[in-house]
């Protein structure tokens, strides 16, 4: 009888030791930010003053593809002509970098990609005129 108990104990100990496995945890992969589509302005400020209701922003559109952009009904903006764009970091972008087709110079604009009311927005800050005048546009995808 003691022999059976001893054998069982050894088996249980073996089971206990060999049941442990090293778990290889892989951090979740942050998805690439996708902004492809047509975006319109839903909110605009100049030096912190709300301009949304006092100026007609409704016709402005910027259409992003995977690497290019096009502007319709131009308003004061970071760029004035079509061209290419990239993120400074596709997974964790802090800046949108525009390169107009008629220029080799890239223009960098601080970029936020918040979800407000369940809807993804793009918030960009730039100075199209005097450097002291800072504009912030909140863009939302237009169907």
């Amino acid at each position: 009888m003691p022999r059976i108990i001893k054998t069982c104990c050894i088996l249980l100990l073996g089971l206990f030791v060999f049941s442990c496995k090293v778990e290889h945890l892989t951090p979740p992969n942050e998805p690439m930010k996708n902004i492809a589509g047509s975006w319109g302005i839903i909110h605009a400020t100049r030096n912190g003053t709300d301009l949304t209701s006092g100026f007609d922003f409704t016709k402005f559109r910027i259409v992003f593809t995977d690497s290019t952009y096009a502007i319709d009904s131009l308003l004061p903006f970071i760029v004035t002509t079509t061209g290419k764009w990239v993120f400074d970091d596709p997974q964790y972008p802090f800046n949108l970098i525009f390169t107009p087709a008629d220029s080799s110079k890239s223009i960098l604009a601080p970029f936020l990609f918040p979800v407000t009311g369940g809807v993804r927005n793009i918030v960009i800050t730039f100075s199209p005129g005097c450097p002291a005048n800072s504009y912030q546009y909140t863009l939302q995808k237009v169907n």
Binding site: R46, G54, P128
Partner: peptide, 12 residues
């Protein structure tokens, strides 16, 4: 307003 602005600003 703004007192300092050029033609590519939005002026009030």
């Amino acid at each position: 307003v703004p007192g300092s602005s050029i033609d590519n600003d939005i002026i009030t």
